[in-house]
Design a protein around this nucleic acid. Structure first.
Lengths: 342, 342
DNA sequence: CTGAAAGCGCTAACAA
DNA sequence: TTGTTAGCGCTTTCAG
């Protein structure tokens, strides 16, 4: 019995469409990319042939031939922290208007993993890179510089960018919050946050915060750090711990809104008068949390805006290969909510 | 004045490494991929040359030549719903042990966008596709079937898969919760959820839920739907609305834990006795919410496990191109928490 | 408006 | 163990 090996599931190529439509590969390629002038008639024939075959172009080959890849590498520490999906949506919103497409890589806050992910992504020759933070391994910095493509470091502006950067100053943010707290007359201030060795932005807020307090001769009365677990639950725990250790605290500054929400619920349970007996503030402006019994004092990290701006920078520089790097500092505002006296 | 055009930032190629090390391109390629036998000495020379030049391989060319792309397309509706990042982390955890890498595409729950994203991703010729849900446009189904690569549809098993599937039965989940509620003696039951035209899984839960109630002669007493906005706040609003309309309700079933949490906070504010005066249940088992004043009754959607299994299926089928499709139904369990009587 | 030829940077297959 | 040759499927470039 004889079998023809004709029905193997080899993916279709331009050539198949060319043969099916009786038009040269080159013209088929033109039609499929809307490039150059093609008569309406041939365009029709090509399109219907491609459709009926179910042809899907091979971008690998296209990219190799054209030396163009319409991908933008976006490298972030995590997807589980709502901050980053929000940045992503700013990026996507802008890139959707262009030919460019974001591709996400996640580093889990690990510098070596960042290095691996970056290497992996650069080997696809993307048109640009958007990467969270200003702290990278030497190798990562070297790769980014050598890549010759636009690089935007986002979220933070306290440092020197490789190329462009857009973000907020976390040091300034911490300082600002400290000033607002002091101005409102709070004196005995506790700090609650993540363990910070790898979260540079949280660290910088902490530094700005303690620095500004110090300037007024105030020291953080007590502090508590966590890692892992449900932030809401951790916020509760840490708040209990801190208040047990120092019942005289009159303000609690949390390094993010989730743990602040846990703290808020705990204080309400205890019947503590907020914001007069104890005030609270978090960081981020997480919309997710609207609907809590009190509106938390917080500071908007401008996440979506950072994403938008970063994407715009990439998009511009892709079209203007010899443009200059941009540095954009956004200014977060304090939202006092119901938990910080004015 | 004469300038040599030598210093243009053309990306490095294998050839550059070959010349720098005095070893043939082929051998350089072997070293860089750890393929075939190469003497320790030449390996050394190649590696140091590559490193000192800062060479990053071009995967585009590699993929074209080898007809292999170690990417797995993961297509999900959204990143802002914590469900999907959790699925992603299951996928990543498994793929990190392999050569494969996930690449995410987001559809915003729009079938046409799903189709576009799918087309886009398939044109990169990934090794496999993991895609949320069983409902796709005809064109999407056709592309997936024609692609000739393993496809795993995830999250839902109420339907017919294109290839493999792994998930839970949302109909059964809704039914189970209805039975538990009835068994606990609740009679006048309200439903609160998302507007569901495009969220098929929420719709199926609703169908299973009402179906099981109907079997016991019970109808949903009232219902309320939302879209957009902060889920916590929406949960509050809808709960108020429903209780105003029908103060006799003794159970509220929410289509997700976030809005259930909003409902919980509202009921506690009102001093309502939970779970005796009114019971509540959500869906998902969001760890994020541990730390609420009461533990919500909910049902685990097995998100991470679904991700793991899906990745395992892809990984196996990549190595066994003629393997058979798998169908895996996971079984979510009710967690009664403090808001549903046993 | 359409087509032919060359080659993108790498790897499979074979030869030495 | 190493090198040579011939493409991968597309787009660029140039010629009709």
């Amino acid at each position: 019995m004889m079998l023809l090996a004709s029905d193997d599931t080899r993916p279709l190529t331009l050539r198949d469409v060319s043969e099916a439509s009786g038009v040269s590969e080159m013209t088929v390629s033109r039609v499929l990319r809307n490039r150059g002038d093609v008569s309406a008639a041939t365009r029709e024939r090509v399109l219907s042939a491609a459709k009926s075959l179910g042809y899907v172009p091979n971008k690998i080959a296209g990219a190799l031939a054209s030396q163009r890849v319409n991908l933008v590498a976006v490298i972030i520490p995590s997807l589980r922290n709502m901050v980053f999906p929000e940045v992503m949506s700013g990026i996507s919103a802008v890139l959707e208007e262009t030919e460019l497409q974001p591709v996400v890589g996640v580093t889990d806050y690990l510098p070596e993993k960042e290095e691996r992910v970056l290497y992996e992504m650069l080997s696809w020759r993307p048109s640009g890179v958007i990467i969270a933070g200003l702290e990278h391994t030497d190798a990562s910095r070297a790769m980014l510089s050598a890549s010759g493509i636009p690089v935007v470091e986002i979220m933070d502006v306290d440092g020197t960018p490789i190329d462009s950067m857009v973000g907020i100053s976390h040091r300034r943010a911490g300082r600002k919050m400290a000033q607002a707290i002091l101005k409102a007359g709070y004196q005995r201030i506790g700090f609650l946050g993540t363990k910070m060795p790898l979260d540079h932005r949280a660290r910088k807020r902490f530094e700005g915060f303690t620095g500004a307090l110090a300037k007024s001769g105030v020291e953080v009365a007590d502090q508590e750090f966590y890692s892992g677990g449900s932030a809401l639950a951790k916020g509760r725990e840490m708040t209990e711990t801190l208040l047990n250790r120092d019942p005289e605290l009159d303000f609690l500054y949390y390094s993010n809104d989730m743990i602040a929400a846990g703290g808020l619920l705990t204080l309400l349970d205890k019947g503590i008068d907020i914001p007069d007996q104890i005030g609270l503030a978090g960081f981020n402006g997480v919309e997710l949390l609207d609907g809590l019994p009190r509106k938390l004092a917080t500071m908007d990290a401008c996440r979506t805006e950072i994403g938008r701006k970063a994407a715009e920078i990439i998009s511009e520089r892709v079209n203007t290969p010899d443009g200059a790097p941009s540095v954009i500092e956004l200014t977060p505002k304090i939202s006092y909510g119901d938990t910080l006296r004015r």
